[in-house]
Structure formats: C-alpha cells, structure tokens
Design a protein around this nucleic acid. Structure first.
Ligand code: SF4
Length: 222
RNA sequence: GGCGGC
DNA sequence: GCCGCCAACATA
C-alpha cells in the first residue's frame, strides 16, 4: 500500500483532489526569482526562461498553465511573460500581437471562453521535448549527472540524491519526484512514499507545509 | 506548436 | 506579412 498525495484529506469533504487555487503572486516572480516549492520540471523551465528570456510553445504551455493553477491572475501572467520576453528580443508590442491572445485564451477570455488547468504529470511525462525545448519531466529526460546536479541545486540533501536518481532510473518518475518532495519539505512522518500526480498540487502543498511551519514557529517564539 | 482565415 | 482559435483536468 502506498500513501497517495491526498492522504491528508481524511475528513468528509476536506476536498483537496481538485487542488485549491494557489496564492502565488506576481511579485514573487520578480528579478527571475524562482519561488521555493516548485517541482523540478517547473524549476527547470523557470531557469531556462530567466536564462534565455524565451520558451518554445511546449514550455510556455507547461509553465503557463502551471503558474495559472498556482494562482497568478491573467493580468499577472501577462505582466510576467511580457516582462520576461522583453528582456530578450521580443518587444512589448510584438508580445501583444504574438503571445497575449493565447494567454487570455487559457484564462477563458477569448473564443470559447473556457479556462484551462495545469497539465498532469502523466501528460508531461509522455511528452518528449525536441531540440531547444525544455518541457517534459526531468526525472525522465535528464542524464544522471544532470539530474544529480539539479537535485542538489534545489536543496536535496546529498544523502537523498542517490535514492531519487535510482527511482528515476527505474522509470518511477512520479515516485522519484515524491521523494524529492519529502527531501525538501517537512512531510508527515507517517507518509512512507508520495506519488506526485500534478505539479501545481506539488507546489500548493509545499507552500501549505511551509506556512504551517512558519505559524507554529511563531507560536513557540512570540 | 497545430489548425484556420485574408 | 496580418490575424483568430485551440490545448487541461477529473469525474460518472
Ligand atoms: S513528476 Fe510531475 S511534477 Fe514531478 S517533475 Fe515530473 S512532471 Fe513535474
């Protein structure tokens, strides 16, 4: 038996399955900052974006819908992408013509007016990035040295890197990702393993845990 | 990125 | 070259 991601929702309709909308704010993404608690696939896209000031279509979809589910409003998303692309070779007038419509569309403000939500892990894992693309799941796509380096970079303790890489090598990507979650968050000790199914849920739950920790710390030290 | 229109 | 429209999810 493996603990599922929603194991905490023991109550009647505590309802975490359709993970609550996150509360990520535009200000947390300033200056190319990568907010703590993001899964490796999204950290990777954030880094590539801040590095090259651009992402191909697949990357924009994967990261854009993720940020939306993390809580960015449409205005915040437009601001974020416009500013980031503007640091590269896409001036704001070209951005408005070439990229803004698609963002409004995912927020249900154009065409059929239907909102989209974050890709699930299955879809991301089953997508293979081509040359110059950085979407997809790092636990599947990265070479072993690169995965090790990336895990260290997001704060996984040295002793935890090997077991995670091992899970990834056995093609247990979502388990590897769950183990990374456990290695970088104060999870319930009763959880022996975690299968990550959705990146936004990963992030929103990481923030919940950090918030809980911050408030309990304040209670102890008033 | 795909489809479509001029 | 200009432009519009689309995709996701879980759930019964
Ligand atoms: S398992 Fe899911 S969340 Fe974790 S890196 Fe892969 S796709 Fe992203």
């Amino acid at each position: 038996i493996q603990n599922h991601f929603y194991a905490i929702a023991a109550e009647g309709h505590a309802k975490t399955s359709t993970f609550a909308r996150g509360d990520l704010k535009r200000a947390e993404l300033h200056a190319g900052d990568v907010p703590a608690g993001m899964p490796l696939c999204m950290v990777n896209l954030m880094n590539k974006l801040k590095d090259s000031h651009h992402l191909k279509h697949g990357g924009r979809m994967q990261l854009g819908l993720f940020l939306k589910s993390c809580g960015l409003t449409m205005e915040e998303s437009l601001s974020f992408w416009r500013d980031e692309f503007q640091k590269g070779s896409v001036a704001s007038d070209r951005f408005d013509k070439q990229y803004a419509y698609s963002i409004r569309h995912t927020y249900g403000k154009e065409g059929r007016r239907k909102e989209l939500s974050c890709y699930g892990c299955m879809k991301i894992i089953n997508t293979t990035p081509g040359p110059g693309e950085h979407h997809g799941c790092p636990y599947k796509e990265f070479s072993e040295p690169r995965l090790k380096q990336s895990l260290s970079a997001i704060g996984v303790p040295a002793a935890e890197v090997a077991p995670i890489v091992s899970l990834a090598k056995e093609n247990h990507y979502q388990l590897a990702c769950g183990r990374t979650f456990m290695a970088t968050n104060r999870t319930d000790p009763s959880e022996s393993s975690i299968v990550v199914t959705n990146p936004a849920e990963y992030f929103n739950r990481a923030r919940m845990l950090r918030r809980e920790e911050a408030t309990t710390a304040m209670d102890v030290d008033p």
